[in-house]
Amino acid sequence: MLREAVCGMDETALIAAAQRGSVDAFNELVLKYQQQVYNLAYRIIGDPASAADATQETFIAAYRHLSEFRGGSFKSYLLRIASNCCYDELRRRKRRPANSFEDLWELEEEANPWLINGDEGPEEKAERQELAHLIQRGIGTLPYDQRVILVLSDVEGMSYQEIAEIVNIPLGTVKSRLARARGKLRDFLREQEELLPARYRLE
């Protein structure tokens, strides 16, 4: 199928074409969702390189299992695969421990140009970096099942219902895991208060 042919298609048509084997149609979907999948992976894993690996794995697995997708939300389908791929990636990292979150401090700046904002002064920039780094470290301290739910809810902005579908757990469990994750993160930020920029302190 020619590339031009997939350009004007809506999502359902793209999925149908991809299910018939069109890689171009699937790549349109990749372009649409890669930002979201990569962000989810980055926030769950906390490392740019591993997040990129997990993202690529997600799209490969999504393409291979596309015949199992039977309608519904394609985003939920992708994020479900992504959360599984992140879990696998974290387990791989555990077997060969790479950089800790501490070591990522330097890496993060290079890898994430969003940390550099031309409009803000050096002090503000440093504060923003510090805060993002601290929150990412806090997310990293959460157990995996709580971390995924916190990221899906508060980073990706998914509803309780969507999260329940993605993670395949009851709504009540989503609610309690999310509350526990938020509570733990709040406690972590309180403990690290001296590292938190003054205007972001919780008390």
Partner: peptide, 11 residues
Amino acid sequence: PRIPVPRNFLL
């Protein structure tokens, strides 16, 4: 902040 993708993940 949203983090821009380091590269495209096209298959």
